[in-house]
Design a protein around this nucleic acid. Structure first.
Lengths: 214, 214
DNA sequence: GTCTATAATGGGATAGAC
DNA sequence: GTCTATCCCATTATAGAC
């Protein structure tokens, strides 16, 4: 943290982030990372302790930045009471595509990394991510609850998971030039889903009997 | 395919599918797989040729079954013209949670595997999956286009990606007992998003200037 | 088809000089 | 803080007996 030569440490972080995102944690090797970062092989263990610890450091750096950016935009949206639903969703979605000063390329890279973390259940990283996310999720669920006072809180959390899935997979997949438009589309799509009325029991019954036919 | 001892081959397939889903392709080792399947280490190479080929075989088996189940339900939904939007979405979503005779546990396992395949860009498996998916996606996009004749086809494909993301990540994450209810929630959520009117240019403009303030 | 034994490779981590 | 050299370990894949 307080070392003079930040450049070696940061070159490792940047290079490893790229290679982990492109190839995955187990495929990218320390030899490859240190070679492309033009640092010595032993530097990883000196600065981070282990390959796992390096991954955690990469993750923490970006996720903290993403969460902070989301919170700031959420606070801005909450200056209106009740907040506008689209503003709350914007606060969640927009920072995901450009939360670093580096621009879209880094944002998409981290989305790929996030997707890998989601896929890696039963791992320290997955648990850590869920914990860091839980706090932010609760705040966004609350904010949406204020924008839609009639909604069921339990259902809102479920629907927020839909949005996370759509956002993460789409941002990790899409061509870079489209991310800004796609984010707007997602906000519109999600807002409509959240505002949709809950079907009555009678309508539910009709749907299930329809399914049974097929 | 036409060998007498299908049991060794199938025990490898089932065990490897479970371990790949739980741990990932590179963490699960052939030693672990063959030990838990109670077959000899060399049997994998004899029956499949390599670890990669084993993965492809696992994937093909389930994805073919999933696609077939989806197509059948889609055909049923298309017997009404124009089809009911919720029926089309049901045809896409419901088979994902119980497309094998084994029930929910296997379905969720494969969703975890699918999520890993999505995360693994630049890999043979990812490309193969996209190709197999493309055909089904086009048919579903067309069907939704029939249910919503005023919608823009390009936008529909984008929104279908949202649904795939929400479905895949949610099904891979969720507790088993909830999958049936969650699928119904997703259909309702997605239907509302698809039916949402496209904002006018004036409304778009208002939103962007609102963002600039924050 | 199934097994044992092993070849061939590459990985993460570390000791110790500078 | 940085480097070289190396330890130690695990992996996939295969050769060859049965």
């Amino acid at each position: 943290m307080f070392q003079l030569s930040v450049s070696t440490r940061d070159r490792i972080l940047d290079t490893a982030e790229r290679l982990f995102a492109e190839q995955g944690f187990h495929v990218a090797t320390l030899r490859q990372i240190t070679q492309e970062a033009a640092v010595n092989l032993a530097a990883v263990n000196y600065h981070f302790g282990s390959k796992q610890a390096l991954m955690r450091a990469i993750f923490k750096r970006r996720l903290d930045a993403l969460n902070t950016a989301r919170m700031e935009r959420l606070d801005a949206a909450l200056r209106i009471d009740p907040p506008e639903l689209e503003d709350v969703l914007d606060a969640f979605v927009q920072p995901a595509l450009a939360f670093t000063r580096g621009g879209d390329a880094e944002g998409q890279r981290f989305m790929q990394l996030l997707l890998r973390a989601f896929a890696d259940r039963d791992t320290d990283l997955h648990q850590a991510m869920r914990l860091e996310y839980a706090h932010v999720m609760r705040r966004f669920a609350d904010a949406i609850g204020h924008a839609l006072p009639d909604a069921d809180p339990e259902r809102l959390r479920q629907q927020l998971d839909f949005i996370v899935g759509a956002l993460t997979l789409t941002m990790a997949e899409s061509a870079l030039k489209d991310t800004r438009i796609i984010a707007g589309e997602l906000v519109r799509f999600a807002a409509a889903g959240l505002r949709a009325p809950i079907p009555t029991d009678a309508e539910q019954e009709a749907r299930f009997s329809l399914e049974a036919r097929s």
